Computed example of a mutant assay.
Amino acid sequence: MPRRQYATYASVLTVAMIAFIIGFPFLLAALAGAIRCSPDTCGAVGLVFGLYGRMLGVLIYGTAMLALISARCRRTGFSFWWVVASLLWLLAARDALMAGLNFWAVGFSFGILSFQWPITLIFFFAFVTFLALWKGSDENGSEPPRRSWKTAQASAALSAIIGVVMCIPLFVTLAWIGGLRLISPLSVVMFPQHYLYVQIGTHFITLTSALWLLLLVFAGALIHIVVSQRRVDVPPTRFSRPVL
């Protein structure tokens, strides 16, 4: 997919998703007013619509964006691994995507009691923006600086691994729903936050703090790559005509 076409589609989809999330409470209020439900019924309607309506919107956006990233990566010669990393970033940010500005009971249904900054979602948008700015070989662009590209790959890989750890409650819940009940989902909901950390003196390095550090490294490497990109002049062939 050409860079400008990718940038246009990604911008439209992202703006539509942001508008959908911001306007979702108003959609719930409009639905409740349209059916003139009683308080108890409105609560049930809000929960069902908040679960499946929001889930459908997130699935459509995620699938479309991953398809765009895959098409752009094929055009620029990037590995398909970046699509997998983008999927993990989105899955790790499921709390904000599903519970943010949603009906209050949805969070309890998903086991989401609270959520912090969706750091992995910032990783996702940083890479989406990078693909819109980077001129690959399809536009006679130069190769990314080796050191910065390796740094970006390493930080993205570590963040994706942390994303997998943060998705453990989701995977266990899906296995429980599918009938594979090896462990209770409630026992692993708080597992990443309460058991995976490193204590240095009186300070604690958690998954969240590690993600912030990796994000700074990742964004810095991508910015350096974009700033240092240059156009490679293709030598004219014997069939090319002179420009007058």
Results as ranks from 00 to 15, higher is better:
Arg74Asn: 10
Val106Met: 05
Trp212His: 14
Phe127Pro: 00
Leu97Lys: 06
Gln193Trp: 08
Gly220Lys: 01
Ile183Leu: 12
Leu91Tyr: 02
Gly62Asp: 06
His194Ile: 08
Pro144Gly: 04
Ala96Gln: 09
Asp138Gln: 09
Gly136Gln: 08
Phe130Ser: 04
Gly136Asn: 04
Leu215Lys: 07
Arg231Pro: 01
Trp104Pro: 00
Ile225Met: 15
Ala132Asn: 11
Leu47Lys: 01
Gly46Glu: 02
Gly141Met: 11
Phe124Leu: 15
Met98Ala: 06
Gly201Thr: 10
Val227Leu: 15
Thr206His: 10
Ile21Lys: 02
Leu216Asn: 03
Trp176Asp: 05
Ala99Ser: 09
Val165Thr: 09
Phe24Tyr: 09
Gln5Ser: 12
Leu97His: 03
His203Phe: 10
Pro192Thr: 03
Gln199Pro: 08
Ala160Arg: 00
Ser209Trp: 11
Leu59Ser: 13
Arg36Phe: 10
Ile200Pro: 04
Phe26Leu: 14
Gly111Ser: 10
Leu244Ser: 10
Phe115Pro: 00
Ser155Cys: 10
Ala210Gly: 02
Met166Ser: 05
Gln5Tyr: 07
Leu133Lys: 13
Ala154Gln: 09
Ser38Arg: 15
Lys150Ser: 07
Leu91Ser: 02
Ser184Ala: 11
Thr206Phe: 07
Phe24Lys: 04
Val188Arg: 05
Val58His: 07
Ala10Gln: 02
Trp82His: 10
Gln199Tyr: 05
Gly43Leu: 08
Arg75Ser: 07
Ala67Asn: 09
Thr208Gln: 11
Phe171Glu: 07
Asp95Lys: 14
Phe127Ile: 01
Tyr197Phe: 14
Asp95Phe: 15
Leu51Thr: 07
Val48Thr: 07
Ala126Ser: 13
Val234Ile: 14
Gly50Pro: 03
Thr237Arg: 14
Thr63Glu: 13
Pro2His: 12
Leu213Met: 13
Arg3Ala: 04
Ala30His: 06
Ile60Phe: 14
Leu215Tyr: 09
Arg75Trp: 11
Val165Asp: 03
Ser184Cys: 03
Ser184Ile: 03
Leu196Tyr: 02
Thr237Met: 05
Ala64Val: 07
Ile69Val: 15
Phe191Ser: 00
Val165Leu: 14
Leu101Gly: 00
Arg94Ser: 13
Ser70Cys: 06
Met17Gln: 12
Ser109Leu: 12
Ser38Asp: 11
Ala93Ser: 15
